[in-house]
Each structure stands twice: as C-alpha cells, then as structure tokens.
Design a binder for these strands. Structure first.
Lengths: 257, 257
DNA sequence: TGGGGGAATTGATAGCTATCAATGACCCGG
DNA sequence: CCGGGTCATTGATAGCTATCAATTCCCCCA
C-alpha cells in the first residue's frame, strides 16, 4: 500500500520548480513539515468527498485530478506532474479526487502548518500564486481544446498541450529524429472522458490522424508526433474537411486492409 | 469612446468582494493608484497580442475573456463580473483579449505599481491568491461542462453555472415564484463558441429543454429555470435519452405547431 | 412609421459520433 | 505455458449535430 515516510529529512525535492524562488528559511520550514508519500499506479490519493488535510507537491510520476459524477463517471480536470501542487490551501472543500496515473511520489504538508507558514512567508505565497496562475492558464487552454467541435481536433489539441506542457519531463515527451514522442499517461477511456467523447471514437480519430501521416501510433500509449504544423491546424480549426472528411479517411483505410 | 477618469479618488469599489479582507493602508494604496475606466458594450478592452500594462478589477457590467484563433473565431474562456480581476499580475503575456459584453466599469491599476504593492502587502497577495483560486475552480467546472457529450447537457450545465456563479448579481440572476430567471449576457453565436457548437444547435437544444418544461425562454437572452433538479440531471449525465430522445422531442414540437 | 440589418429560429440533409457488439492484443498470475 | 481480465480496436447502425439555406423576429434609425 501507500508508503509513508515519516520523516521530514531533507528531500531533494524542494529544489523543484515550485519552490525555486523561496528563501532558505522558508525552505527549511517546508522541509521540516514535509512527509514523503508514495502511491502505486491506480491507487486513490484523495477521495472525492473528504477534503484532504494536506497540501501536496508532486515529486515524480503523474496524478490525475478528477470529479466523480452522480452516475459514477469520472471527469478529469487535470493531470499533475512533478512541480505541481494540489489540494486546497484555504478553507472550503477540495472537490476532486486524486488518483495515481503512474507510480507516484509526492511530498505532503499538513494543511494547518502549511497555511500558517503561508501567512508568514510572502515568498512562499508568491510561489503558490505563480503556481496557481499557471494552473489557471492551463485550464483555460484545455477549455479551448474542449470547445473544439470535432474529435480529431480535440485530440490534436490534447497532444500538443501534452507536448508543450510536459515537454520538460523526459519520461513523457521525448524528441526524436522523426518527430516528438509522447507518452500518454491515461487509458483510452480516461482520455475519452477528458475530451468529452468515448474510447471508440478516440481510437478511430487517432488512427485517422495516423493515416494522414500526422502522427504514428507506436503503441497504444506511445505516440509519435510527425507533423506538428498539421496538428496545430487540426487543433485550431477542423480544417481536416478541406483535405478529406474523416469518413473518407476511414473508408480508404478499410479498403487498404 | 472609452471614458478614462484620471483620478484615484475614493471609489466605492474597494469594498467589493475582491478586497474584503485587506488592511486599510493597503486599501488606500490601491485607491491612490487606481483609475476608473468605462467601456461600452462591444468595445475591446484588451487586444489579443498586447499584454496589458494594467491589472483590472471589474466594478459593474460583464466582460468576456477570449482567445482569437487563426481562423478568426473567438473562443471564450471566461466571463468577468463585478469583483473579478483580470490581466496578468506577473511577467509574461496575457494571451487573451477582453471585450465588453455589456456597458462596463472597472478600475485599472498600473501593472508595475500593483506588482510592487503586491510584494509589500501579504494581505493583498492573499486576496489575489483567493481570487485566482476561485477562478481556477470555475475554469475546472467549465471543463466538466464542456466535456459533456450532448449539447443539451452542456447548456444545462452552463445555465446552472451562471446561476451558482453569478447568483449574487441581481441584474443577471433573479429568483421568482416560477423559478430562477437568468439573463444570458452573450449572443447565441458566442454561447455556441463557448460550448463548442453552433448557434443553430444552441437554439434547438434550448427549445428542446423548454418543451420538456425544464426552462422557459422568455426572451432569447432571458431564460427562466423552472426545474433545477432536472437541469442538474441533464447536465451531469445525458439522461434525457431515458425519457425521450432529443429527436422525439423535436418531432413532437413539430406536430404541435 | 418604414425600412435595413443583425440575430434567432426553423427546415432539410449529410456527416460525425455514440452505441452496441464482437474480436483481437496484452498483461498478470497460476 | 495457459486462462482470465482489462484494454484497444474494428464493424454496423442509429442518432445527434454541423451545415447550408430560408424565414422570421427585433432593434435601431432615418
């Protein structure tokens, strides 16, 4: 189960981008109150209902933030990677559940203590403010992607966002001579929920993009982006229809086999 | 054109929810650097490219934050009402354009001065942090709404969000004996862009909801929410199909006329 | 009071997408 | 090495939705 290291001993983490600009004393205080936690892929870190009594900072791996609807479906609202904060700093419920999309390691700060430190440390407050601002920008980018009418466009947007947003993380995005290789950290079902569609459609649209030569599906969860330009065009506009309708592409594919 | 009041004289504003918990001295400092600006419906407050050199706080009216795509389409990422902040506090571009959805009044703080004050005033920083946190929550709610597969569900979600989010503003949301009356501050075309669809579909889905008795379209931009429960169900899940498919509803409507 | 023009609505049709069903690929544990 | 299960893919079909076109509504202004 979840491994909980009960010591605040100096963890390498606090050099992570979250806290790059804070004062040494603040860093020490954080360090002292911090606990390292580890979860394995699939484990639940935070349940929907229970507002967590800690603030988390991801050290490695990927977390999925999501909301459970009445019918049990999960709607993903964000992916968390190293350097991201989660949990709610202030009063009020944190209304999402957090699940480990891969094996994960994060540091956890007791909520009360963190908030106390926050009040006393403008530098920390600034760091948190920056973090949330970035998160907000990301959420807005996602909104734009989601408001794309066609699925291929949403997927293209998602791939590009993965790329630009997680580009600095080797295990996820890796440039090669043929293009950029992206590791998709979530299943087709989750991806479908994220993009407001169903897994079958994800599969079809992905293969349609592949047949157009824009991407290459090396494994279901490892995709090579060949033509960023074309993807960007597909993401910004559903201009695929200019070239050929999705249906055309699909029927060509059928003939070829 | 835009009316720019060049005085920082005490404006009633600073009692607005944004700055409810700040110290008097901070309030005075804000007051001193603040300029009131007024724009009429349809005017552009911030262009896409130019990063604004001020931070704005809405006093009255509604602003639309949006991003212009390559093909010229506008993707709305948020609506701003009284008490909301906009612009970017830190370095880096503010990548959205802001347009007056109604006649609007807001106060503008020179960016450098605001940021300076921010560094010196933990209370202000806290207030801004809270504001952005709320904004983030809102963006995430919107993501969930947008990931709804069916249009009627997205609209239902939007109406409810308007309701819960802008409930405190009389001009937008008003409870009556028959239900809650919501004023839609944007055109069908904008609403369509916001929800990732087209105006015709908005119209149809809206009328379908009306024919089911969940809402009543008093005017194109004034809608009465009759059955919140039913709307919530429609928003969380596309359960409309359990009752009757959208097509059934539409054909019934055709018969009735 | 009578256009003019944009917005909203309605109709008809084609086309994506959801859905249901079935097959295939892969991983894990026995 | 062989099940069992989950996940991805593929097929077929029905059903929403986008699109194009036309009409109506409404607001503004002469």
């Amino acid at each position: 189960m979840a491994n909980d290291t009960p010591t605040g001993a100096h963890v390498g983490m606090i050099g992570s981008p979250i806290f790059s600009d804070i004062k040494p004393e603040t860093r020490d205080a954080l360090d002292a109150m911090c606990r390292i936690k580890r979860f394995r892929k699939g484990q639940i870190v935070v349940q929907d209902e229970e507002s967590p009594n800690f603030v988390g900072g991801v050290l490695s791996g990927i977390l999925r933030m999501q909301k459970t609807l009445l019918d049990g479906r999960q709607h993903i609202v964000g992916l968390l990677v190293e350097g991201d904060l989660f949990g709610r700093v202030f009063d009020g419920a944190f209304e999402y559940s957090v699940e480990a999309a891969t094996d994960v390691e994060f540091c956890s700060f007791p909520r009360a203590a963190f908030e106390g430190l926050l009040s006393r440390s403008p530098d920390l407050e600034r760091a948190v403010l920056l973090n949330i601002t970035n998160e907000l920008d990301r959420a807005r980018e996602w909104m734009i992607i989601l408001s794309n009418q066609k699925i291929a466009g949403r997927i293209a947007g998602f791939l590009l966002l993965m790329c630009s947003r997680f580009g600095r993380i080797d295990h996820i995005v890796e440039p090669t001579v043929d293009g950029i290789e992206v590791k998709i950290p979530i299943s087709r079902l989750d991806l479908a929920h994220l993009l407001g569609t169903r897994p079958e459609s994800i599969s079809r649209a992905l293969h349609a993009l592949a047949d157009e030569g824009h991407i290459e599906i090396q494994e279901p969860d490892r995709i090579l982006l060949r033509d960023i330009e074309a993807l960007a065009k597909a993401a910004d506009e559903d201009e695929m229809q200019t070239v050929a309708t999705l249906k055309d592409v699909l029927s060509v594919k059928r003939l070829k086999r």
